[in-house]
Nucleic acid binder design. Structure first.
Length: 288
DNA sequence: AAGTTCGGCAACCGCACGGAC
DNA sequence: AGTCCGTGCGGTTGCCGAACT
């Protein structure tokens, strides 16, 4: 037995929306909201449309904060950068562009931006982010350093000297690195990158397989930090420590103590970064 | 001026997911 | 645990106006 259709297709109106229908839907939603049920909404609102159609019309066109057209160069760069790193996750990409809908971004990409990028008119590299970190090692000097390379294999070895950037992560997802001041510290030309670890309490990283693949990144961390107040065992070889004792929250883990601002959780003895935040590891200036 | 092609975009379709029961 | 059903998403379609022949 197949799944029941969401509406009686023979008795619902299809095709372009009239101004009257728009007004009816808008008025109803502004007065009553969706009521948590799009399927029954058209009947209550007095529309002969499918609930899905109403939802689409509202989300893509009638919502008050929607922007149409006029994509800026900055938005172009963001879309291209995100498309390169995660593919056609239009809803995720659109979520980084206030006022833009996934449909809008998708259409813009398919009709204009793809061509523009292939013609080399968009500088994706300049606004690219670290999408894959591997080979993290620690310099065990009195002034510890974290060394890692990025997936492009083009990162330049960097010695921070007196400028003291720290190693951290940011939660404003998918922000181009150039906005973080990253380009001041990494030329993305040579195979390694060294960053000041002075504000980063973990003393050791191990096993960073595929950090950067969207979704299921596993990331095991160990620490022998003297100030650790609690340890969460991962397996025989790895553990996670909390400097301030606030690491474990509601079955998940917040690595705020380490400068990571996004939630993680333990799964199969690995530390899993949640969904869309998984690739967001980037350095920024220590005084930020 | 008429016919054809192309580009842009709104809307639809079908599937996957997840919550409720 | 299995089923149902609403929601969200990405891919695709089809309409319409502009550009071209």
């Amino acid at each position: 037995m197949g799944r029941a259709p969401c509406c009686d297709k023979a008795n619902v109106k299809r095709g372009p929306w009239s101004p009257e229908e728009d007004a009816t839907l808008k008025n109803y939603l502004q007065k009553h909201g969706t009521g948590g049920n799009w399927i029954s909404l058209p009947r209550k609102a007095g529309l002969t449309r499918c609930g899905k159609s109403c939802r689409l019309r509202w989300l893509n066109y009638l919502r008050p904060d929607i922007k149409h057209g006029g994509f800026t160069e900055e938005e172009d760069n963001i879309i291209c950068t995100l498309y390169n790193s995660m593919g056609s996750r239009w809803s995720v990409i659109a979520s980084q562009l206030p006022g833009r809908t996934d449909n809008d971004v998708k259409n813009y990409w398919n009709t204009k931006l793809k061509k523009k990028m292939l013609e080399g008119k968009i500088d994706v590299k300049r606004s690219s982010k670290i999408s894959n970190i591997s080979d993290i090692t620690i310099n065990n000097s009195s002034h510890p350093m974290v060394q890692f390379s990025v997936s492009t294999g083009e990162a330049e070895t960097y010695n921070p000297g007196n400028s003291s950037p720290c190693f951290s992560a940011y939660s404003s997802t998918l922000t181009p690195l150039m906005e973080m001041g990253f380009q001041q510290y990494c030329d993305l030309q040579l195979p390694g990158l060294i960053l000041d670890q002075s504000q980063f309490p973990l003393s050791t990283f191990t096993e960073v397989p595929n950090l950067g693949t969207y979704g299921c990144n596993s990331y095991s961390v160990s620490s022998s930090h003297q100030e650790a107040s609690s340890l969460v065992p991962l397996d025989n070889n790895h553990s996670i420590s909390s400097v301030n004792g606030s690491l474990v929250k509601e079955g998940g883990i917040l690595l705020q103590d380490y400068g990571f601002e996004f939630p993680c959780e333990l799964l199969n003895n690995d530390l899993i970064f949640q969904g869309k935040y998984s690739t967001e590891v980037a350095p920024f200036l220590g005084n930020n």
